[in-house]
Simulated scan of single mutants.
Amino acid sequence: MKPDLREQILTILAEVPLGRVTTYGRIAAMTDGATPRLVARALRELPAGHGLPWFRVITASRKLADHGGADEQRRRLVAEGVLFDNRGRVAADRLWP
């Protein structure tokens, strides 16, 4: 991945407000050519101790992606006041931007 594209992704990620979520696709659309998969890749490659709110990024269906950190992601989102419906989806009004 091009370093400037990774930088765009991480800059956008840092802007996602507390208690809100965004999708891989929404982040991709705000860049100069990233795809949702590239956004996911950038998040997977974050170094330990980075401090970025990776957990605020969900799928287009407003669910958590199936990955090893999903339980931690849910825990962090709930701690910020983000709730899930009985189908595991986040309310549409929590989407940013």
Results as ranks from 00 to 15, higher is better:
M1C: 07
M1H: 09
K2Y: 12
K2H: 10
P3C: 01
L5K: 13
R6Q: 12
E7R: 14
E7W: 02
Q8A: 06
Q8C: 03
I9T: 05
T11R: 11
I12H: 02
L13T: 05
L13V: 11
A14N: 13
A14T: 05
E15S: 13
V16A: 11
L18C: 12
G19F: 11
V21K: 08
T23L: 14
T23Y: 14
Y24W: 08
Y24F: 15
Y24I: 10
G25Y: 04
G25F: 06
R26A: 15
A28F: 10
A29D: 12
A29K: 15
A29H: 05
A29W: 06
D32P: 05
D32E: 15
T35E: 05
T35K: 00
P36W: 07
P36C: 03
P36T: 07
P36R: 09
R37K: 15
R37D: 13
R37A: 14
A40C: 07
R41H: 11
R41Y: 08
A42M: 11
L43Y: 02
E45H: 12
L46M: 11
A48K: 15
G49Y: 04
H50V: 06
G51P: 07
P53E: 01
W54L: 05
W54C: 01
F55Y: 15
R56A: 00
V57H: 04
T59G: 13
T59F: 00
A60R: 15
A60P: 08
S61M: 08
R62C: 06
L64Y: 02
D66F: 07
G68E: 07
G69P: 07
E72C: 00
E72G: 14
R74P: 02
R74A: 13
R74S: 08
R74Y: 03
R75L: 12
R76S: 09
R76V: 05
L77F: 12
L77T: 00
L77G: 04
V78R: 14
V78Y: 00
E80S: 03
E80T: 02
E80M: 06
E80A: 07
E80R: 01
V82E: 03
V82G: 02
L83P: 00
L83V: 10
F84P: 00
F84W: 01
D85C: 03
D85H: 01
N86H: 13
R87C: 00
R89C: 08
V90N: 01
A91H: 08
A92N: 04
D93R: 09
R94H: 05
L95C: 04
W96D: 03
P97V: 01
